[in-house]
Amino acid sequence: MPLDDFGLDDQAACLRLLSGPERHRHDAFKSEPARLQHLAVRGLVRTTLSRYRDITPEHWRFDTNRYGRPFIDDSLDVSGLHFSLSHTRGLVACAVATFAEIGVDVEPRDRDVGLAELAPAVFSPRERARFEAMSGQARQDFFFTLWTLKEAYVKARGIGLSLPVKNVELDLQVSPPIAHFGDEIDDDASRWAFRSLHLTGRHIVGIAAAVPDGELKIVPRQTRAINPPLNA
């Protein structure tokens, strides 16, 4: 969901959906862009999930694991429905799957975060060598393609920043990307599918998924604003 047209009416509609803790967090934001991103992504997940189950957006309840990953509260007795959220300047995203290990991350292509300083902490030696040989927008896109895919993997695993992401090496010279894991990751790379999407001209979206059976199939959908429930 692009945030360009997230107007006052949509913001008011989203506010009405929030739980008490979500509203408290919303009100605590000092940054207006961060507040709007939080509001939009909470509205997005609620209205999106209601398209898959007969639960109205305001009645969804969520919990988090000890690393902060959100999931549908067990009290709702919902099975076979899982999600991952991400938000950044200008865009919020919600990935929905029938399996638990799904992760999404989004970043603007022009974000200035000191890429050269971050690269040693997040890239394998081979990834870093390729990054340092690039310049301009290609260098930016390479960085954020890897960054979003690795962040999506971390989210899908649901164990927070304890994963040493520079030991997750991704080969972007093939399509779709292929992953190689160091021993520190303690996971089988062959379980995972990675996809990088340019859903807008300004953002890069990374998706990581461990599909229990079959191939990963992605169906992108863009909303102009937070959608009402189907029966509204």
Rank of each mutant, 00 (worst) to 15 (best):
M1D: 06
M1C: 02
M1A: 05
L8E: 09
A12W: 05
A13R: 13
A13C: 02
C14A: 05
C14L: 04
C14D: 03
R16K: 12
L18P: 04
G20Y: 15
G20V: 15
E22W: 09
H24Y: 10
R25Q: 06
R25Y: 08
H26F: 15
D27C: 07
P33V: 12
R35Q: 12
R35C: 10
R42D: 15
T47D: 02
L49C: 04
Y52A: 01
H59S: 08
H59Q: 06
H59L: 08
W60F: 14
T64V: 14
Y67E: 13
Y67Q: 14
G68D: 02
F71N: 00
F71S: 04
D73Q: 05
S75G: 05
S75L: 08
D77L: 06
D77I: 12
V78A: 11
G80V: 14
G80T: 13
G80I: 14
L81W: 10
L85T: 12
T88D: 12
G90T: 15
L91R: 03
L91M: 04
L91Q: 08
V92A: 04
A93N: 03
C94R: 02
A95Y: 01
A95D: 00
V96T: 10
I102M: 12
I102D: 08
G103E: 05
V104Q: 03
V104F: 10
P108H: 09
R109P: 07
D110Q: 13
D110V: 11
G114A: 04
G114F: 07
L115W: 02
A116L: 09
E117I: 12
A119M: 00
A119V: 01
A119Q: 00
P120Y: 03
A121K: 08
V122L: 13
V122Q: 07
S124Y: 11
R126S: 14
R128C: 01
A129P: 06
F131I: 00
E132L: 08
E132Q: 05
M134I: 09
A138G: 13
Q140S: 14
F144S: 05
L149Y: 01
K150V: 07
E151Q: 01
A152Q: 01
V154T: 06
A156H: 03
R157P: 10
G160Y: 11
L161R: 07
L161T: 09
S162Q: 15
L163K: 06
V165N: 05
V168D: 00
E169S: 14
D171T: 02
V174M: 12
P176T: 08
P176R: 09
I178K: 11
H180M: 07
H180A: 12
F181D: 01
G182W: 06
I185T: 06
I185Q: 02
D187K: 03
A189C: 02
A189T: 04
S190D: 09
S190N: 04
S190Q: 03
F194I: 04
F194H: 09
L197G: 04
H198E: 15
L199Q: 02
A210D: 09
A210I: 09
V211P: 06
V211A: 01
P212S: 00
G214T: 10
I218D: 02
I218N: 02
R221H: 15
R221E: 13
Q222A: 13
A225C: 15
I226S: 03
N227I: 13
P228I: 09
P228K: 05
